[in-house]
Amino acid sequence: MKPSDIKVSRRTVLIGTAATAAIASVRPSLGATGDEVAAARMPLSLSINRRSYDVEVDPRTTLLDLLRENLKLTGTKKGCDHGQCGACTVIVNGRRINSCLSLALMHQGDECTTIEGLGEPDQLHEVQSAFIKHDAFQCGYCTPGQICSSVAVMDEIKRGVPSHVMADVAAQPGFTETEVRERMSGNICRCGAYSNILDAIMDVGGATS
């Protein structure tokens, strides 16, 4: 593609092939990353965003790199690759994890939801809409992880998972700003959109709780 094909507008997403290619492949070819020299690759079947994938991977491949490099699902970001920033947050079997600290092979049979599985530009998830409304992002690099975490945090509060800021950990957590701030703290935003992210989550959570 020609780079200048990327046009950003509010009316519609006037975008070239780069973004659409990233969400199109169901049975990806692994040739791109060179199977001819690969050491003992191993088979892996898992579901990502409600689609089944049967792939072969180098055992060293993290879930994050499987998504970003092998499957070209680049919405999930690599910020630190060491579990220190949260940009790689995805939801596996209903729970958020850092996909950088998990081998792809550890997810045989798992169901994984990434940012691409939550919504698309013309069909946004309510949390994605709320992030736009509250300007809950700037550079956008931590944003997919923040949104995946937000979705999971609302569920964790509903399920009663305790947190560090509860005075009584035996009690049911409330959907409060303090709770949300604490639970979102595994997602760093260096642009400093935190207070807007909080507003976005409270907006959605307040509407649904």
Binding site: G75, T76, I115
Partner: peptide, 13 residues
């Protein structure tokens, strides 16, 4: 609202 919002919030940027 940011016009790049739909791309950034869906991982399409």
């Amino acid at each position: 609202d940011r016009i790049d919002g739909p791309l950034k919030t869906t991982g399409n940027a």
